[in-house]
Design a protein around this nucleic acid. Structure first.
Lengths: 348, 348
DNA sequence: TTGAAAGCGATACCAT
DNA sequence: ATGGTATCGCTTTCAA
């Protein structure tokens, strides 16, 4: 035994099994509880103890097992994020912001993407077993789903969704106000003949934008605006314009689109297939303010959603609900920010 | 007590605490182990027992606690996905595919987004405590990081990254082959004066694309191609073209861009600031095959990465490594698919 | 301040 | 096929 420099240290490090608090305790010659305490923020540990334990932990590459901790504390430090259309250009930004804010708050993100909005049922079955501390949902849930959250005492915050039949916390962009800003600016600029290219009928946000547009137009005395379209895709914008033009009656003055990508598709159809260039011959507006909206070929007039504020609100609301389950439900509505580009004649 | 219809059933359901296997056992009048077995796929349970337990579970809304299960089985059924640039248009698609495939395979995804590639250190500290079964990393990790994976016996698969100094599994798109296809087609179409707009110098993929381009050009006897640019943004494409034109010497015949978004920025700069329209006056090619590449205003000639195959490969490799840790490391390289659009004069 | 011991909610092995 | 019991790795009383 003489001359050995490192006892079983190396063995511990290279052994397959992850290092536990017992290993650290043994190595440091203290109790296992002491190790645990050293890794708990506000615990009462002597300086000396802490130093010894931390040194041992460092040496062995110890990291507390979050799974075991969750079991006893009944806090997983996990939240689930449900997103329906990651391919919608708007969501990657939201997701990036959400995960970053959660990380900063010491919470991990379990991601669930739904390909169809109807998948919620199955996805929730996958969520429950992990005892997540809360859920941020940017996907359509039914009142029954929301009731299950209540029953299970799992805090829920909707992002750009909500249900008016039940009480639930949510963060939204004010679609109605945004649409109003767009239409008013177009109207002021002299447009009278409008058309609407709507999003998917099963998207609350999409329906809200469409409805708000029709309402505002009616208030302005315009009642004959055609409504086309059925999803959030470029193709929807493109094809809807072709339909619109094929219907005869000449081009509209202005087209209200379900979102930016639809607007981009519409602009391309007008230019490529019908020789109409914005803002000279036609005005097109979008919604969301995604990256490509500012690309020179499109330069959209649109409503930019304040994503950073909205994600911040969603995360902080959820964390508050986790800390204080009796927190009253709250609906936070953010106004979008008008961006005027050259896709429309517009008067602010 | 006479006349009561439902004993403590309702209490169990509405009580705050999640339902455990003990609750179910009591309710069904069987042992707790029996309940556990009923939820384990291949266990030996009588039909009668299963029916009774399942009924009780259903009634109480029982879902096995995945956290507790993980603790004893040493399998979290969690994998971590590390992504550096969610705002890079290419990644949302990758992420959506990855999570969907993982869900299908019964594995949950813990998402970590890195804002700077250098953040890997801190992020890994957040990953280890959750005892994830494996990691898919589309972010730059150092050999030291990879060594830590080895030490901890955590399977790792790189997605569009790799390190040639260490042995690690990875799924990549063949950048070199893709670039070659692009350049050869451009060369064949008569282009001789090339320029390169590169991506970020700390992106392996970006550097590889640039290097491959320079090499191929050299093989074709072209040695004076200027290299500009420094990231994957639209602005990079836009500004680099302006720089290129400001340098004098007239426009190049063809521009090789780090990715599609850069190519789009370049096309816009040529058209808007210099009156050069593709493919008549200029040829521009991109890489990735993201959605906007097919928009009519750009219609890029580009290399489409076979995302579905690549994500499928990544997930199945990781799952295989989880099942069989001694699995040899493997590098799977997929050829990109040429898409010819009208952003370049091109000869196949 | 420290250590011993009791859970957290499941799985797994062992008898029966 | 079923029930009893040890165990996973931690946190949390409770004494000392």
């Amino acid at each position: 035994m003489a001359g050995r420099t490192r006892p079983d240290k190396v063995v511990s490090i290279t052994s397959g099994r992850p290092v536990t608090s017992y290993d650290v305790a043994r190595h440091a010659g203290v109790s296992q509880s002491a190790v645990s305490r050293c890794f708990k923020p506000g615990a009462s540990v002597s300086k000396k103890m802490r130093a010894r334990v931390m040194a041992a932990a460092e040496e062995l590459g110890y990291q507390p097992n979050a799974i075991a901790r969750s079991l006893i504390t009944r806090r997983s430090n996990l939240i689930a994020v449900l997103i329906s259309n990651l391919t919608n250009l708007y969501y990657p930004e939201v997701l990036a912001e959400l995960t970053q804010r959660c990380s900063a708050a010491g919470v991990r993100v379990l991601l669930f993407t739904l390909s169809r909005e109807a998948e919620a049922d199955e996805v929730l079955q996958l969520v429950w077993p992990y005892r997540v501390d809360g859920v941020i949902a940017s996907a359509q849930l039914s009142p029954a789903h929301v009731a299950e959250f209540e029953k299970r005492n799992v805090p829920l915050v909707f992002y750009n969704r909500y249900l008016n039949s039940v009480s639930v916390s949510s963060v939204c962009c004010d679609q109605e106000d945004g649409v109003r800003q767009l239409i008013d600016g177009l109207y002021k600029a002299g447009h009278r003949k409008f058309a609407i290219i709507a999003g998917p009928p099963d998207s609350v946000v999409g329906v809200e934008r469409k409805t708000a547009a029709l309402e505002r137009l009616e208030e302005l005395g315009i009642e004959d605006a055609p409504v086309l379209g059925e999803d959030y895709s470029y193709e929807n914008g493109f094809n809807s314009v072709n339909e619109l033009m094929a219907a005869g009656g000449g081009p509209p003055d202005a087209v209200i689109c379900a979102n930016d990508v639809v607007a981009i598709g519409a602009l391309d159809a007008f230019r490529v297939n019908h020789g109409l260039v914005a803002p000279r011959d036609i005005s097109v507006v979008g919604f969301d303010g995604v990256g490509p909206a500012t690309w020179k070929s499109y330069d959209l007039t649109t409503i930019r959603q304040p994503v950073r504020r909205m994600t911040e609100a969603a995360v902080s609301m959820l964390l508050a609900m986790i800390e204080e389950p009796e927190m009253p439900r709250e609906r936070r509505v953010f106004s979008g920010i008008l961006r005027t580009g050259s896709s429309a004649k517009f008067a602010e």
